[in-house]
Amino acid sequence: MAAVPVAPTAVSEKYDAPLVLVFMGVSGSGKSTVAALVAERLGWDFAEGDDLHPDENVAKMAAGIPLDDDDRAPWLDTVSSWIIEHAMAGVPGVITCSALKRKYRDVLREHNVVFVHIRGGAELIGRRMQERSGHFMPTALLESQVATLEPPQADERHIVVDADRAPDEEADDVLDQLGLTPA
C-alpha cells in the first residue's frame, strides 16, 4: 500500500496551520510509544487518546467487549476537539487514536492532520500486548481490532511506519518521511 506523499514543501506550502499528527493503528502496535517520542523530539504537545475515552468505554474494553460505533462516537468527538483546538491556536500536536475505520478518520480529518499508521502483524502485536502491563485493553480484543482495521487509502493524507523495529527507529522514520526536524 502506498502512502500519500507528504513532502516537506507540501507541509510548509499546503497548510496554513501547524500539523497535528494522529498516530493510528490497532491496540499494541506501539502508537503511544512512538508518538510520545516524536512529540518529545519536536517539542510538540502530546495527548494519549486512550486517556480521552469515557469511563464506560474503558470498562467495556477491560471486560473484553469490543466497542461499537456508538461507543466510539463521543470519544472521536473529544479527540477531534483536541485537534481543532490545536489548529485554531496555531499549535502543532501529536495525538494517538486507533482510527481503525475510514469513517472514524473522517471525523478527525482536518486540513492540518496527517495520519501516521503504525502497522504490524498480528503475531508481533499480540506478543507486545501480552508483555505490557497496566493497560485496559486485553489481548483477546486484538482479533476484533484487526478485523475492524481499514488501512488508510491513497486519497487519505498519511504515512505508514512498520512496527517491527525499535521505537527510536520508528520515530526517526516518521520524522524522515514528513521532513520534520527535531527541536
Results as ranks from 00 to 15, higher is better:
Ala59Cys: 02
Thr148Ser: 13
His111Gln: 15
Val26Ser: 08
Asp77Asn: 00
Leu142Gly: 05
His158Asp: 07
Ala140Ser: 15
Glu56Trp: 03
His135Pro: 09
Ala166Cys: 00
Gly120Ala: 03
Ala59Pro: 04
Ser98His: 02
Leu37Cys: 01
Val107Leu: 12
Ala2Ile: 12
His111Asn: 15
Glu169Asn: 04
Val107Asp: 10
Glu169Lys: 01
Ile84Leu: 08
Leu19Met: 14
Asp50Phe: 03
Met88Lys: 11
Arg109Asp: 08
His111Val: 12
Asp16Asn: 15
Met24Glu: 11
Val91Ala: 07
Ala39Gly: 04
Ile83Thr: 04
Ser12Lys: 15
Phe136Trp: 05
Ala147Val: 08
Val114Leu: 10
Lys101Thr: 05
Pro54Arg: 09
Phe23Leu: 02
Leu42Gly: 09
Gly126Leu: 04
Ala3Met: 13
Ala3Gly: 14
Glu169Ser: 00
Ile95Phe: 01
Val4Pro: 03
Trp75Met: 06
Glu40Asp: 12
Val26Leu: 08
Pro151Ile: 06
Glu13Thr: 14
Asp164Ser: 04
Asp71Trp: 00
Asp173Ile: 00
Phe46Thr: 10
Tyr104Glu: 13
Ala35Met: 10
Gly64Ala: 12
Leu108Arg: 03
Leu142Trp: 03
Asp155Ser: 11
Gly64His: 11
Ala171Ser: 05
Ser29Val: 02
Thr181Arg: 11
His86Ile: 02
Ser144Asn: 05
Ala154Val: 13
Ala62Pro: 05
Ala166Val: 00
Ile125Asn: 02
Pro8His: 07
Leu175Met: 01
Met24Gln: 09
Asp173Gly: 01
His117Ser: 07
Gly30Ile: 09
Ile83Asn: 05
Leu67Ala: 04
Asp71Pro: 01
Val26Gln: 10
Ala183Glu: 08
Ala62Glu: 06
Leu175Glu: 00
Ala2Pro: 13
Thr181Val: 14
Arg105Lys: 04
Val161Pro: 01
Asp51Glu: 10
Arg119Ser: 05
Asp55Val: 09
Ala147Phe: 08
Ile84Gln: 11
Asp172Cys: 02
Lys14Pro: 09
Glu150Leu: 14
Gly121Pro: 00
Thr96Asn: 05
Glu156Ile: 05
Gly90Asp: 02
Ile83Ala: 07
Asp172Ile: 01
Ala166Gln: 08
Asp162Pro: 01
Trp44Val: 07
Pro152Lys: 10
Phe136Ala: 07
Leu67Asn: 00
Glu156Pro: 03
Val94Gly: 03
Asp45Phe: 07
Gly30Glu: 06
Ser81Leu: 03
Asp155Gln: 12
Pro182Tyr: 01
Asp176Leu: 09
Val113Glu: 13
Ile159Lys: 05
Gly25Trp: 00
Gln177Pro: 12
Leu149Gln: 06
Val174Ser: 08
Thr33Ala: 10
Lys103Arg: 15
Val160Leu: 00
Asp70Thr: 09
Ile84His: 09
Pro66Ser: 13
Phe115Glu: 14
Val11Met: 12
Arg165Gln: 03
Leu67Thr: 08
Ala2Met: 13
Gly134His: 10
Ala39Glu: 06
Ala99Arg: 11
Arg72Thr: 12
Pro66Tyr: 06
Ala87Asp: 14
Ile118Met: 03
Glu85Arg: 12
Gly64Lys: 13
Val58Glu: 01
Met24Asp: 09
Glu56Phe: 01
Glu48Gln: 10
Leu19His: 12
Glu40Gly: 05
Ser133Trp: 02
Trp82Arg: 06
Ala163Ile: 01
Val79Ser: 11
His117Asp: 02
Leu142Lys: 03
